Simulated assay, not measured.
Amino acid sequence: MALRTLLYRYFFFGWLFRDASTGTALERAAAWRHNRSQARWLPTYMRRWMCCGLLLYLMGVLVESVFSAPLLSTLFYVTGLMSVPGNAVMAVAWIGFKALSGPF
């Protein structure tokens, strides 16, 4: 598998899930069951995003304190901050798959 594909699959979870909004009722139910079973991987993705966000934040602190470059450190702070909404989306999806009985 190509490195680009591996990196995509390491950070983004969309490839794990099936579309539960199309097809017959049986196909939608099967897709929902599949998605519920795949939701077990969402905490893993949340940890990855949290670790990357924390690492980028620490790099921003390092660049700002050691190199006295606040403008450059902003690049690391803002990039690291983007892990917060990503984690929020993953948490809502995970809770939704655990709490909801299905789309029907």
Rank of each mutant, 00 (worst) to 15 (best):
G53Y: 00
V89D: 06
P103I: 15
A2I: 01
S68M: 14
T74G: 12
F12K: 03
C52S: 02
R48L: 04
V92K: 14
S37M: 15
L16A: 03
L75E: 08
A39F: 09
F104Y: 12
M1D: 08
F76M: 04
Y77H: 13
F104A: 13
E27G: 06
E27W: 04
L71S: 14
F11T: 10
V78M: 10
L54Q: 00
F97M: 08
S73F: 03
R18N: 02
G102C: 08
S68A: 15
L56E: 05
M50F: 06
M46Y: 00
W41H: 15
R33P: 01
A30V: 06
V89S: 12
F67S: 15
L6Y: 07
L6K: 12
S101M: 13
L55E: 03
T22V: 05
R18E: 03
G80R: 01
L62E: 02
T44N: 11
E64Q: 09
Q38K: 15
A20N: 02
S21A: 00
C52F: 00
A91M: 10
T79A: 13
P43A: 00
A88R: 14
V66I: 13
G96C: 10
L75M: 15
R47E: 05
F67W: 13
I95Q: 11
L7H: 08
V84N: 00
G23H: 00
G86Y: 06
A29W: 03
Y8G: 07
D19T: 01
L71N: 08
Y10S: 14
S101Q: 15
K98A: 15
W32Y: 09
R18V: 00
L72A: 15
S83C: 08
M46P: 01
E27H: 07
E27K: 07
A69M: 12
A2E: 09
A91W: 06
F67M: 15
R33K: 10
A30H: 03
F76K: 02
G14H: 05
F17E: 00
Y10A: 13
V78R: 07
E64Y: 12
L6P: 02
V89G: 09
D19F: 00
A91V: 01
F12D: 10
N87I: 14
F97I: 05
R9Q: 14
S65W: 13
F12H: 09
L75N: 11
Q38L: 12
R33W: 02
F104H: 12
N35L: 07
G80N: 01
M1V: 06
R40Q: 11
Y57V: 07
G96F: 06
G53D: 01
W94D: 12
I95A: 14
V66N: 10
S65P: 06
S73H: 07
G14I: 07
K98W: 11
A25T: 04
F13K: 04
G60A: 04
V92P: 06
L16H: 05
G60N: 05
L72V: 13
M59P: 04
G53V: 01
T44M: 12
V61T: 08
Y57K: 05
T24L: 02
S83A: 09
T22W: 02
A29D: 08
L71P: 02
M50C: 07
W41R: 12
Y45L: 09
K98H: 14
G60F: 00
N35H: 11
E64C: 11
